[in-house]
Design a protein around this nucleic acid. Structure first.
Lengths: 119, 119
DNA sequence: TGAACATATGAACAATTACTCATATGAAAA
DNA sequence: TTTTCATATGAGTAATTGTTCATATGTTCA
């Protein structure tokens, strides 16, 4: 067994050969950070509920507030986060602003998550 | 225009017809909560990095610590969270515990997220 | 058994965050 | 313009969370 191919942690507990491969295959730190930031947006049940509601219908802020039984302010704050993550888009129509899903990634990401849970 | 089909927020700002549909189509509160909890696990760059590393190779805790340049304790805490979410599995082999991805959902969820970012 | 190594875990702390409250902005109607 | 309605936003607060430090558990080997 070669020195860099140990099977059990020795030499300060490193499998040197594997680590080399692993480090090389890792995406940029920036990309990993952005990915985590994206999932962080999905990681709140209020925002998940907003997205689920928007699956079915475009709605204005006050409708969302009523649908989820939350204050307009709370919803508005969360919509801002969803918009920054490009998960929803806002369209002004007079006094109201209608929000809708930005694209189909939202659905597929949530669907994948749902699949994982149901097993 | 019917009374329950207003287009602009009136009557305490509710589009009653849409809300009815929307509420009916919403999953259980429990499921929404679980979904958010799952994505919360993906929503940390340390855990994302751990998962990415495990894409390439099964590794023991100390290797992960070395690969990510973090303490064994920090890694171990995060592995616990990943294991609770059934995203990774641990296999004991002597003194070491080797961790690996639990299933392919992990990859597909992360891939979807990556697609969303790269646009 | 006892020493050495790998991992797990509890407590404490710092940082982040979701909501509330008050208020500002923006648009339509009087 | 002034009022009214819908939305956005800044500050403050309570709760959550990721890391560190110290220590416990579990396994191997002498």
């Amino acid at each position: 067994m070669a020195m860099n191919d140990v099977e059990i942690c020795e030499d300060k507990c490193i499998h040197a050969d594997r680590l080399e491969k692993v480090r090389a295959g890792l995406p940029d730190e920036d990309e990993l950070y952005d990915l985590a930031e994206l999932f962080k947006v999905f990681g709140d049940s209020t925002r998940i509920r907003i997205l689920y509601v928007l699956f079915q219908s475009e709605l204005c802020v006050c409708d969302l507030a009523e649908a989820l039984q939350m204050t307009q302010s709370a919803i508005s704050h969360q919509l801002k986060i969803l918009k920054q993550a490009k998960l929803v888009t806002g369209r002004r129509e007079g006094k109201s602003v209608f929000y809708a899903l930005a694209d189909d990634h939202v659905r597929s990401i949530i669907d994948q998550g749902r699949e994982h849970i149901e097993e």
